[in-house]
Structures are given as C-alpha cells and as structure tokens.
C-alpha cells in the first residue's frame, strides 16, 4: 500500500513555514546585531521605539496584505487608500466633526475602497492586480482632487495624539525648569500594531473566515465545491485590507499632524515585500501574520539602520530590493526539495 511508505524526513527539523519564519527571525536578529556595531546609537531604547513607530504603518498594511495574498490575490491600492482615508478624516474634521468619529469614518472609507476592490474582483471578474491597480489610481486621484493636492493642516492637538502619544511615558521636571524624558513611553502606534496583529492572527488561525481564506488561496475550485462562499471570503479579505490601510493612514497622518494627500506612495510595495519576506506565497494558500510582522521589521530595521549608518536613500532601495529577491529565492530553494 502506497501510504504505508514512510517518508524519510528529519522530524526534528522545523518544517515548512516554521522554518521560513525561523530563518526570517534569525535574519532580523543578525541585522540588529550588525547595525549595533556600525552605529552605537542603534541599540538604544529610544531608537528601538523609533523603529517601532516607523514600522507601525508598514506593519498595519502588511496585516491586510497578508490576508489578501493568502487568498491568492494582491492589493496594490493600499498606499493610495491610506491617503484617501486621511483626506476624508481631514475634511470631516475641518467640517466640524470631532477627531475620534472623523478617524473612525476615515477607516470606514478605507474599508469601502477595499469592499469595492472585492466587488470588482469577484463580480466583474477582473484580476486582483488590475482591479487594485485601478483603485490605486482612483483613490489617489480622489484624494488629490478633494484637497487640490494641498495638505490639510491645523487639525488640532487631539488629531496628533494617535501618532505621537505613548503609554508609560516618564518625564521628570529638572531643577532648571526643563523637562527631562526618562522613558519615552511605548508609542500608541506600536500598541495598535500589536493589537491588530494579534487580532489578525486570531482571525486567520482560529476562525472560520481564516480557514476559508487559506482554502480559497490553496484551491479556489475545491473551496467552492466544499461549500465555501468564495465571493464573500474574497470581499472580506479586501475589505479588511482597505480598512487596515485606512487605519495606517490615521497613524501616519496623525504623526505628521497634517493630512498629506500625496502620502503613502509605494507603501503597497513595502507591505507586499514584508509579507513575502515573512513567507507568504503570491500563489496563495501560504502566509502568516507573525511572518509578515517579522518581514515588516526586517524592512524597518534595514531602513533605520542604514539611515543611522549614513547610507543614502538610493542605496537603501537597492538593498531592500535585493533582500526581497533573496528571501523569495531561499523560499523556493526550500520548496524544491
């Protein structure tokens, strides 16, 4: 009988995605180690928190992107949707709405963009690449049109709280009357990222929708024949991606305390890179939130470390590009044997 054949696999080695995640984590630790030698200021509490803050936006985008990629799709619109959500929020605040509901509606606006992506992909049967490429242009165009391409500023102090506030901030008044920051605090965006990542991982691993997302990406026809509502599952994934892009927009714009309608260009590529470095397969069916978070931090640490080492932004692009190709290459090597 064929299934009695025992495959000679070394059981003690972590297999499949676990191995990939482990190698990504080791890469991240090696990067941190290398940068702490090149720049003494790299390995400090302050810089660590800066990395957290900088990675929060890409991380939020990567959570949604991972879900979409697992369904076998792609979402190129998140960078533009991020900007449009910010613009919606900015205009609502200018119209007199308080900050919190305005931000909530900004996130909803992102979700609506994602929902439209899902509808176009499932109902009009347009490939995800083309559908979200269209949305990328539409959302950016709407954001620029609504604002006349001008930033919206003077949004009040509360608008900046989400991006700039932190938990457990310890400030001590010195004798000379100036405050001294003892511990800068854990930034809200980092906490938000953690909460959303845990929520995303929970939905993917422990809930039916997550199981269905994996099944759709693994074998769409099989999922349909098994009674999975493929259309609903895809729309759900794109809506989640859009809403998370909206949330990322809130974090980014709040940090700048200004709405920039031309923010977020090329962010979708960072999010895709984070997912892919973290082990997600663009063929669908494979990926994890934890992997994508490691991927996001690899990109974040690379950017930050290279900045501190004085590397130019152009060289950074080259290095990150090489890392993306390298990560996928290693993954394929692993899959081939």
């Amino acid at each position: 009988m064929s299934e009695v054949q025992t495959r000679s696999r070394m059981r003690f080695l972590p297999s499949g995605s676990a191995l990939h995640k482990l190698s990504a984590l080791i890469t991240l630790l090696l990067l941190i180690l290398a940068f702490s030698f090149t720049s003494p200021a790299f390995l400090s509490v302050n810089n660590g928190l800066t990395v957290l803050l900088q990675t929060a936006v890409i991380g939020l985008l990567a959570i949604g992107m991972t879900m979409v990629i697992i369904t076998g799709g792609i979402d190129l619109s998140v960078g533009s949707v991020l900007a449009l959500s910010g613009v919606v929020t900015g205009l609502l605040i200018k119209a007199g709405l308080p900050v919190v509901p305005a931000m909530a509606l900004g996130v909803v606006a992102g979700g609506v963009c994602g929902f439209v992506n899902g509808l176009v992909i499932t109902k009009m049967r347009i490939t995800p690449f083309v559908a979200t490429l269209g949305m990328m242009m539409i959302a950016r165009g709407v954001a620029l049109q609504l604002t006349g391409a001008a930033p919206i500023s003077r949004l009040g102090e509360t608008f900046g709280a989400l991006g700039n506030g932190s938990f457990f901030r310890v400030v001590e008044m010195q004798a000379n009357g100036f405050p001294k920051v003892i511990f800068p605090g854990i930034p809200y965006p980092a906490v938000l990222l953690l909460v959303m990542a845990v929520l995303g991982a929970y939905l993917l691993q422990r809930r039916q929708i997550g199981r269905h997302i994996f099944s759709v990406g693994s074998n769409e026809e099989a999922a349909r024949l098994s009674g999975v509502d493929v259309v609903r599952t895809k729309i759900w994934a794109y809506t989640a991606s859009g809403a998370l892009a909206g949330l990322a927009g809130m974090v980014l714009m709040s940090r700048l305390v200004t709405i920039q309608p031309n923010e977020g260009v090329m962010y979708e590529l960072d999010a895709i890179a984070a997912s892919v470095i973290g082990g997600a397969s663009l063929m669908g069916g494979v990926g994890s939130i934890s992997g994508s978070m490691i991927g996001a931090f690899i990109i974040g640490v690379l950017r930050n470390g290279l900045n501190m080492a004085g590397t130019s932004a152009f060289i950074q692009q080259i290095i990150i590009g090489v890392v993306v190709i390298g990560a996928v290459f290693i993954d394929q090597m692993r899959n081939r044997n």
Binding site: F214, S215, S218, A222, S226
Partner: peptide
C-alpha cells in the same frame, strides 16, 4: 479531481 485544498491538512 478530489477537490482538496492542498495547503491544508486532512482534518481541515
């Protein structure tokens, strides 16, 4: 075609 999702395990 069996209609199985290849990336999932038997129980899933």
């Amino acid at each position: 075609t069996l209609a199985l999702a290849n990336h999932l395990d038997a129980a899933a």
